[in-house]
């Protein structure tokens, strides 16, 4: 009997990468103005034959937006997959832990009170989101530690849920007092990557690269957690250290994604389920597949958001929640039947 391949085969990487690039090109070309693929590719490689307006639409608007959306989708999905494995809970997500909520509160505070870093106005929201995501993590872990020193998964999820509720109350309070900035704050909470800029794309790319490096190396440990925490400890996983490592990587990634894209629900919850149907539950295959599928899913959702009622744009978070809720019910029903 030949052993089933445990890791993600190079060929699978290639196939997923080609599909992702294909979807990305489609999303760059489609929009209120149709850009032919050869023109889009020409502008991307710096062909001087592409004149001003077309080049500007491609390089200043479409490409950074599509890239930001792809990175955000990949990041949130990777976080979802990691949390679902770590907590052995198919309903887990960055939001279950309360990290997304914490990051949102940080971002909303920055928006509502106009907090900016001197010289780098963009980084104010991101910095606050990361700091708050991280503080949320520390607070949740400290609470979990106090209540249950073994950091059992149930405790963490329960505290995450309670913490999320608490944070959303605080957020409503902040929004109520945000006065003249009410509109921008409210629109941000619905999630949008419409105005994505190159520096934001760069920030997300760096965060995704670093956190993927940490998380993808932990595939086997996440398998052990997904089978059971006692079991993970018994087979020799450094349970607390791996948990902390994964939670930190997740909170940094969520902090960056939330600060740029706002609250985009359901991506991290749904994508890993879809990936599991394709490559199975083994995290050494699941995590890379989730990265690509998350990028594809969010790019397509964003495409719908900006073309469905063109020229009016829908908030991305609304589209993902509509698609996500439907997918989720279907997936959930299917997994129940398998059981």
């Amino acid at each position: 009997m030949s052993p089933r391949r445990e890791t993600f085969a190079p060929l699978s990487y290639l196939v997923f990468l080609l599909i992702t690039l294909g979807v990305a090109l489609l999303c760059i070309c489609l929009g209120s103005v149709w850009v032919p693929p050869e023109q889009a590719l020409g502008a991307l490689v710096g062909n001087p034959g592409i004149e001003g307006t077309a080049r500007s639409i491609i390089m200043d608007l479409r490409v950074p937006r599509v890239l930001a959306v792809a990175l955000c989708g990949a990041g949130l999905s990777l976080c979802g997959a990691a949390m679902q494995g770590l907590l052995r809970n198919p309903l887990a997500d960055g939001s279950t832990l309360g990290v997304s909520s914490g990051a949102s509160l940080g971002a909303v505070l920055a928006l509502a009170f106009g907090f900016t870093l001197p010289g780098l106005p963009q980084l104010g929201v991101m910095g606050m989101a990361i700091v708050f995501a991280f503080l949320s993590l520390l607070l949740i872990l400290a609470l979990a530690w106090r209540l249950d020193a073994s950091l059992s998964t149930n405790t963490i999820i329960l505290i995450g849920v309670i913490y999320s509720m608490f944070i959303s109350a605080l957020m409503s309070l902040v929004i109520a007092f945000s006065g003249p900035r009410l509109h921008s704050v409210t629109f941000w909470t619905m999630g949008s990557l419409a105005g994505a800029q190159w520096n934001q794309v760069l920030a997300m790319a760096v965060a995704l690269a670093l956190c993927s490096l940490v998380l993808l190396r932990r595939g086997q440990e996440l398998n052990a957690f997904a089978v059971g925490e006692d079991n993970a400890r018994s087979v020799g996983v450094e349970v607390k250290r791996v948990k902390l490592e994964v939670l930190i990587a997740v909170s940094v990634l969520i902090g960056v994604c939330v600060s740029i894209g706002g609250t985009i629900g359901f991506v991290g919850l749904v994508t890993p389920h879809a990936a599991r149907l394709i490559v199975g539950p083994n995290h050494r295959r699941l995590l890379p597949a989730t990265l690509f599928l998350g990028a594809i899913f969010l790019m397509l959702a964003d495409l719908i958001a900006r073309t469905l009622l063109s020229p009016t744009e829908l908030p991305l978070g609304v589209v993902t929640s509509l698609i996500g809720a439907l997918c989720f019910v279907t997936l959930f029903a299917r997994t129940r039947r398998v059981k």
């Binding site: 089933r4 052995r88 086997q220 997904a226 059971g228 199975g280 083994n282």
Partner: peptide, 20 residues
């Protein structure tokens, strides 16, 4: 340690669980 309760979260194969 062989625990008393087993609560596998996902549809891993028998082989994958033994391999852990």
């Amino acid at each position: 340690l062989l625990s008393q309760r087993h609560e596998v979260g996902y549809s891993f194969t028998v082989q994958e669980v033994i391999r852990l």
